[in-house]
């Protein structure tokens, strides 16, 4: 893989990750939001693959395959099943409206760049330059979590955070050790399974996926 191709491939893949994150803020249809999550998972897998080819690290290629399976296929599939329970569910009234959310996402991206100056200084590679994008994607996910009302949107937000962290991990260190990566992925998948089960139970109890109704426990 030549240097320039590596660089542009990496940049495109990373941009896909961030764009997908932004799209979750933009779209109202829950189905679309899940779809953009799948896209992000694909982007993330691509990043791992590109890095793996570039460094000639077969372990990273395994990880890429794993990420592709878990984050672009299995998890979106689980979520789609969840969406199917409640078709036509839309994020009609997010706590922060869409334009404001997008502006905030922009601001968060700036913040991510500002806050990771010390990190990018340590990693002077092309990948290192892109670390802030991972952090930005994470922040956008976090933002989505506390501004979106639907249970599915919140799960997606959590996964965006997770993907963002994973992106940072890939870019900064070419992936954490395999054992850790495996364990982490397993944990994430399990967490999503748990969340899905909970969401279904909530749906049967509440009749909706709206999280605003979860305010019975308070002081």
């Amino acid at each position: 893989m030549t240097g320039s191709f590596y660089a542009s491939a990496l940049e495109i893949a990373v941009s896909v990750v961030l764009l997908a994150a932004m799209v979750t803020l933009w779209r109202r249809s829950v189905r679309a939001i899940v779809r953009s999550l799948a896209v992000q998972g694909f982007g993330l897998a691509t990043v791992a693959a590109v890095l793996g080819f570039h460094l000639g690290d077969p372990g990273l290629l395994v990880v890429a395959a794993l990420v592709l399976g878990a984050k672009a296929v299995v998890i979106p599939y689980l979520l789609t099943r969840l969406v199917r329970v409640d078709p036509g569910s839309r994020e009609t009234q997010p706590l922060v409206n869409v334009p404001a959310s997008l502006v905030a996402a922009g601001a968060l991206t700036f913040l991510a760049f500002a806050a990771t100056r010390s990190v990018t200084a340590v990693v002077p590679s092309i990948a290192g330059r892109l670390i802030p994008v991972g952090l930005a994607s994470m922040l956008v996910g976090f933002f989505a979590m506390f501004t979106r009302r639907k249970a599915v949107s919140q799960i997606v937000g959590l996964l965006l955070v997770d993907n963002g962290v994973a992106l940072v991990a890939f870019l900064a260190t070419s992936g954490v050790p395999l054992l850790v990566e495996l364990g982490a992925s397993l944990d994430v998948v399990l967490a999503v399974v748990v969340l899905q089960v909970l969401a279904v139970q909530l749906r049967t109890r509440l009749g909706a996926f709206d999280l605003d109704q979860l305010t019975e426990l308070h002081d």
Binding site: A115, L139, F142, F146, D212, L214, T215, D219
Partner: peptide, 29 residues
């Protein structure tokens, strides 16, 4: 008054964390 800090809204709770994270990032920046 302080009971209002814990209104039961998961969004609010995540908001606290988000706020803290932003503060930390700004401080680090």
């Amino acid at each position: 008054i302080a009971r209002g800090l814990q209104p039961g809204s998961v969004h609010r709770y995540l908001g606290y964390g988000f706020g803290a994270l932003v503060v930390i990032l700004i401080a680090v920046a």
